[in-house]
Design a protein around this nucleic acid. Structure first.
Lengths: 137, 137
DNA sequence: CCCATATTCAACCGCATGCTTGATTATCAA
DNA sequence: TTGATAATCAAGCATGCGGTTGAATATGGG
């Protein structure tokens, strides 16, 4: 899908700043992963981490400010829900460069096909080795 | 490193940290955009920005440390080249959530269809903006 | 050689981040 | 009312970031 179909060419830079900055932390990424498909309380969210509850609470606030999480308070509990909307903007941005790794993979695929073609009757059970992601030279 | 490198479940967190952090700055994103398709010198890269050359040089170093830019020095000049490889890891991460915005667009499409259906003979020239349907994962 | 050019290094400043511990607010339950 | 629970607020600390200016390091050209 073309990026211009549903979003402007360059979305709000400040939004992109906040989203990418929010994603630049392993705890926050793990929080988003845990919110994938279910809503969780702050304390439930904090449980697997080796840091204080307060620290997790602040991580959640960072995610809220980035628009990636919404909180709905009922009584003393606060249920956290994922909002993947802003991630879409990040996805549009990074996917602009997909041509590069696709070209890389296409080249690799052609190369592997070439190897396959030169092989003198490979064993039928031995599948072709999986494509390893090309590390930069 | 295994076969899962192509579509890694969880790539190296530190790499992801550096890549997302590098993308969380408008100057660095603009640098990457300007390097899309051509290599540029540091001074050429710095030209459109209202900050000092030293500041741009440090931004480039951040991008180099994130693996997004490589520098080839010949003499006193330093030619900068984009390496989109690490962006692929970021793309894999964010595209994991594509199901959400695709669902959103599907919902929007259904909603627009509903409106269309209730309209009593819409004007022929004013076409409803076409919504490209996102591919179902 | 002499000087301009290209880039980086170094020191500094202001501010944000990530974590801690302790206090506070608010709610539920006995 | 009393007390436990859920979550946030607040202060403090170490670290890192983004910007500046000034100096240093090559390198190329006259």
């Amino acid at each position: 899908m073309s990026a211009s179909d549903l979003t402007p060419e360059e979305p709000d830079p400040a939004t992109l700043d906040r989203v990418f900055a929010a994603l630049a932390d392993p705890v926050r990424r793990a929080i988003l992963r845990r919110l994938d498909g279910r809503d969780l309380l702050v304390s439930e969210l904090a449980e697997p981490f080796a840091i204080s509850l307060q620290a997790v609470s602040r991580h959640i606030q960072v995610l809220v400010r980035a628009g990636l999480v919404t909180q709905e308070r009922t009584g003393r509990i606060s249920r956290c829900r994922l909002d993947a909307g802003p991630i879409y903007q990040a996805a549009v941005w990074v996917n602009h460069y997909s041509k590069y790794w696709q070209a890389q993979f296409d080249t690799l695929a052609v190369w592997l096909d070439e190897i396959e073609r030169r092989k003198p009757a490979a064993s039928p059970t031995a599948a072709r080795p999986r494509l390893k992601r090309a590390r930069r030279a």
